[in-house]
Amino acid sequence: MSATEAAPRVETPTIGVGRIGPVWMLVPALVLLIGFFVLPYLSIITMSLREASTRAVYGEGFTLAHYATALGDPFIWRILGRTLLMGAIVTVVTLLLGYPVAYHLANSRSRWTSLLYIFVLSPLLVGLVVRTFAWMIILSNNGVANKALMAMGLVVFPLQLMNNSLGVTIALTHVFLPFVILPLLGNLQAISPDLAMASRSLGNSRMRTFLKVTLPLSLPGIQAGSILVFVLSISAYVTPAMLGGTGGRTMSVLVVQYLVDNFRWPAGAALAIIMAIVALIVVGLYLKLTARAMRRLP
């Protein structure tokens, strides 16, 4: 017997929940994820590596040509850039609009607050297509917005408010506002009001208290909300398809055009994968950046 032999191991008793429970509880979600996310994704990756074919969805052989073509095409780069820029603008604007609302909701004890909650959630209570049509009525050349502007004499000719990036940005900002308000609200409500009072008592103005105490402590909410909105914006389809025209065409619209209109499944799949990878990189960089800013938070 060696001197280093371990002492007799005592089996730690585990009862149901201790060991088995959590694993079992993961199964339904895992099945769903594997069946409807991982497998389809693998299939799209495979498809993007297949040769094009005129007789079937894709041909027999494997090739990287679709990636090479896409990455060598300035048009694709422009659409990709526009998609990311639009996502960034929607994210920043929803943050700027949503933060004051979340801040107000977190600090308000008025009985009108519940009404404001419904108001905040209202974009989500209307169906996607109906909502987008409503935006078309408002933003089109002889729509409500232009008529109002012309009636007030602010413009002579109607402004181009849709069939470009602007219309898509406006509509996406509207619908994704709740996605930035809700995480921020949860975050702001968890910050003790005593902290702001402590800061004021130490001689700091409301503004300095906000900048030095509340804002840094709400970074997790900002991070969560902005990632949600960014990812949802760059992958949105119906809104850019209906409001974007050619001037506001995004990657997701382009991918669907490849698949449905041009029947170029492998090339479309390659575009989708490129978009996914780029989104992953952008979100990864953003996480790294924000994690640096949040390293002092508990």
Partner: peptide, 15 residues
């Protein structure tokens, strides 16, 4: 006002 204040929750800035 030139006050110092101490709270039940301590209210130290966690960051």
């Amino acid at each position: 006002r030139d006050i110092g204040m101490v709270f039940q929750s301590y209210a130290l800035f966690p960051h």
